[in-house]
Design a protein around this nucleic acid. Structure first.
Lengths: 226, 226
DNA sequence: CGGCATCCATTTTGATACTG
DNA sequence: CAGTATCAAAATGGATGCCG
């Protein structure tokens, strides 16, 4: 594996030699929100077979971007996590997401899969540090059967899967409604009003939540697709 | 082409559906410094055949990321350029480069090709806006037979190939010496002292040049490669 | 020079079956 | 669960020839 190289003395090309193959950056996207087991990864990535998944993970291990760990408290099963080097690819993934939010999202196609974690990472992608300079808060999202949380602190945000230890606010919503929410069809306030979502916890934290993100101007595409 | 999609309703995956195939991001890297002719692109990307290059370019055109243009003043030949949407992938490429500078560069392998434009883009990747907040200057680099320039203005930098219209300072150096320079073996000051490089123009601009870039701590890798 | 079409050897992938 | 083994389909690369 990875015998195919661009053979360029260029930082971009060298990086793509390591993580540019199919599925690799999506694997890193999954691991950015915390350790994952083999089968969780496969469940999140429809179309990626066990063989290729094993090969990709082995490659990331060999290159020092990921490593096997044992899940902490109750689970205690084997899982994969990013090393510091791997985690530093976060900005790359986030910029890909930011670009996609602006230029490539539109409606969900029926054959597309969806996981709430992707949307929460999308929140991270359009997080506005300025707006959160004076905010410290922990949000927990319960979407369908997935639980994620985001820690906002001193102009930074970090999303992780799993429940928060001490959330300031909790947002609960069904997966389908969440998709419509992220599609921009309506706002969180609307969702709460119609009963599609419920939010509990610190009111100030909830009020601040809405202003933290700046969607990269959806649909102001200058260039028509020729 | 591009019948293979991740089928995920996720901004990162949708973006990788568009630009995640082999060679595509390197093509965009080439176009980030200005329009390029078909044959220039092929010359820069050893291993990419005419057929695949044509297919990739067509794909980028179809998706509105690149377009055919006519080169300006003297050349007047056909070339490819990025659209605004394509140009906005600059941050993605630059973050890939920044990561590579930190974790993947080391020595140049003998089979690796090199083009000065890649290194100048590398400069852009480790540009420190803070250090240039009060600086306005245009630098021209003449490396081997390639000419590039960088415009520094109000905390931003933009690198383009071709000569500058009115450079404040000009740096001339051979390609091999330039490789050693970017490898960190010695500094620009050393190169000038030994005669490997020559710099002319505004002395202040040249002095400021050295402080503008922060190499991402080469070789402080925390994780040994298992 | 710019670009497309075709043929072919080699890799990569996708999907499934199978094992500890 | 966590992978390995296997095989068919697709993508790549390299060469070559064609055309304006």
């Amino acid at each position: 594996m990875e015998q195919r190289t661009y053979n360029q003395y260029c930082a971009t090309a060298r990086t793509l030699d390591l993580v540019g193959e199919r599925w690799t950056l999506l694997l890193i996207r999954e691991l950015l929100t915390g350790p994952r087991r083999f089968s969780d990864l496969q469940a999140s990535l429809r179309g990626l077979g066990t063989g290729l998944l094993a090969a990709r993970l082995k490659h990331l291990e060999r290159e020092g971007l990921a490593c096997k760990t044992t899940l902490p408290a109750p689970a205690r099963t084997a899982a994969y996590a990013l090393t510091p080097a791997g985690a530093e690819l976060g900005p790359v993934v986030l910029h890909l997401a930011r670009w996609g939010l602006k230029w490539a999202m539109g409606e969900r196609r029926p054959e597309e899969t969806f996981h709430p974690g992707w949307a929460v990472l999308g929140l991270e992608a359009c997080f506005d540090p300025q707006k959160a300079a004076d905010l410290t808060a922990v949000y927990e999202f319960r979407v369908g059967d997935e639980v994620l949380h985001a820690v906002v602190e001193a102009g930074t945000i970090a999303a992780q899967h799993g429940p928060a230890q001490r959330p300031d606010a909790t947002i609960t919503i069904g997966e389908d409604d969440f998709v419509r929410l992220t599609g921009g069809n309506f706002t969180l306030a609307d969702a709460i009003k119609t009963g599609a979502a419920s939010a509990t916890g610190d009111r100030t934290a909830l009020r601040r939540l809405k202003g933290l993100f700046r969607l990269p101007t959806p649909e102001d595409r200058a260039q028509p697709k020729l």
